[in-house]
Design a protein around this nucleic acid. Structure first.
Lengths: 331, 331
DNA sequence: TTGACTTCCGCAAACGTTTGCGGAGAATTT
DNA sequence: AAATTCTCCGCAAACGTTTGCGGAAGTCAA
């Protein structure tokens, strides 16, 4: 019942715990014969290293913290897959904290990370987050922090993000190309306005339409806070007799609602409504109509962020900059 | 740069570390005035408790391990959400380990849990897992283990699962009711045959069809290992001119492939093919046709498993049994 | 005034691990 | 044979925290 420690092994062999410790880690200053004897007994006694002891002694935790605003079925699983893979391949553990889109919980989570002594933090911010003081404290104490996906643009720190402006531009340009009408109604459906990714994508969207002076476009931007609201927003348009010709959708989360609305309204795509999205590509597989989209990859995002994390652990002096993930237009 | 410890605070106030420790935890044997002074200074110095120290001293880790075979976009996120919520509400941390459907990695993961000194493990097994010796060792050492979703039926242990047999029965019965043909072709599409959930659902499926002697049914079971294979299997049927009337689909993972095939074949549902599934309900929202399904909830599964985990931590003598999650038929 | 209680803080030890140093003895070189 | 190097193991201390005990000073009642 009692957990076997190095001391127990040492006592049984009438030797010093330090020797056992060295032997188990194949240090050259223990003879081969003794090393083998120690390992054999350790195995027989069911010895497991005690992480707490190591952490205390070394002052390190071999743990990376991952703080996310929301656990969604879209982006998040692929991110996590990449992060988990890399983190464990490096012999580190992963501590997952979920902020539920609340700054207070985000602050709590940063404190949990601090207490746990994580050696690095990957964080995607909540919609509510207006400043990152609660992380700055950790930065000062030397813990590398990487902000990914949902970040604060006007803040200092390592960032890994989707190139939202250009992605939105590409998508909107595709939307324009498909529009044959002279006075098209083009709507953009976005997530919460406070999000950096919303800001980027809205900028790209407006940018393209504003420059498309050759057409008389009625453009409008709508901001919703979740899938359900997105669905209701689209339903509402049709209920009011407003029928946009084209729709830009900024993410899978929002697209899920749009697809739901399209289903209920029994719209033909792209005849009744032309849709372009920024997406991981799920809906091109699952829905019966084809939606052209700018493809983003959660996996690549997670991979780049985590790789950068370990680079930073090796060499904390790496230049602070904003990294972008490659995207591609899929039709 | 140096991390502030209790000792540092004690030194600064010329008092004993033990007193500081007590004060910070509001022990009654430190005067109110001194307690306040200590807390103030601790705050000012930026003191953070050192988890490693506490863990070592207490012999506990305040950590729960979650071992999963695969990070999927379907079931998994809702499970994780429930687990994360409860675990952190209890002041515990969550260690996520991903086996990638490999027994070897599952064994590694169990060892990581052992080394980390987790106080409990939630595990869903890989397809390859044939025995659970690697977990038994942990059980002996007093770590509660809960097997959820993908389990080994013929093994001893606390389990939380979907009632697969009855769920499949309900779904298959619905399939039968919709069938008007005299000689219907009814196919079942399943995940890897080694999985307990496959076994359960296949049993329920066969059970109902075998008893439906009033009709002359051509029934067949197909086993695939992922979404893509599911899609190819369905495509293959049509390529060969085989057109089942009804299709039972055992999970969202498989349903994703089926939906893809239906899209490519441009089948009308349920006219060309009648489909019933066991699902969390995603596709009823995302696909243009309606698929009746037996609803399962990853959230409820995660919640029940985690609740049981903490019950077990409180009282390890709780009777070992198999718990079932409620399901409902949605049309 | 004495005795019995409280209040409040210090002390020492322990959790498991690792590190650098020191030294006894063996092996090697001169 | 003496001097040098090597091999191998023990020793003590340290990481940060908490616990029970002991005791000094103060409070209260008889």
């Amino acid at each position: 019942m009692h957990r076997v420690s190095i001391k127990d092994i040492a006592q049984k062999l009438n030797i010093n715990p330090a020797t056992v410790s060295k032997a188990l880690r194949n240090k050259p200053d223990v003879s081969a014969t003794l090393t083998e004897k120690i390992k054999l007994l350790a195995d027989k006694m069911g010895y497991k290293v005690n992480a707490a002891g190591i952490n205390l002694r070394s002052g390190k935790s071999k743990t990376i913290g991952l703080i996310i605003p929301e656990i969604s079925m879209f982006f998040f699983p692929s991110i996590l897959k990449a992060v988990e893979e890399i983190v464990h391949s490096k012999g580190y553990n992963l501590l997952i904290l979920h902020s539920n889109d609340s700054v207070d919980r985000e602050i709590e989570n940063s404190e949990i990370c601090a207490n746990a002594g994580v050696e690095g933090i990957l964080v995607s911010l909540t919609k509510e987050t207006k400043d990152i003081e609660h992380f700055q404290e950790l930065t000062y104490s030397g813990v590398p922090i990487i902000y990914f996906d949902k970040v604060l643009h006007n803040s200092y720190g390592h960032k890994v993000v989707i190139p939202g402006v250009t992605a939105a531009k590409t998508a909107t340009e595709a939307l324009l190309k498909n529009t044959t009408k002279q006075y098209p109604i083009i709507y953009g459906l976005f997530d919460d306005q406070r999000l950096s990714i919303t800001e980027d994508r809205a900028t790209g969207f407006k940018n393209v339409l504003d420059k498309a002076s050759f057409k008389d476009i009625e453009q409008k931007l709508f901001f919703v806070s979740n899938s359900l609201e997105a669905e209701n927003t689209v339903l509402d348009w049709w209920k009011k007799g407003i029928k946009p010709d084209s729709l830009f959708v900024m993410s899978d989360e929002i697209l899920a609602g749009v697809v739901g609305a399209i289903k209920k309204l029994q719209l033909a795509i792209p005849t009744d409504l032309s849709v372009v999205a920024i997406s991981d590509g799920y809906f091109s597989k699952f829905s019966h109509f084809d939606i052209p989209y700018v493809e983003t990859s959660g996996y690549l995002l997670g991979k780049k962020a985590t790789d950068l994390m370990f680079d930073l652990i090796k060499d904390p002096s790496i230049e602070v900059e904003e990294h972008f993930i490659k995207t591609a237009f899929i039709r």
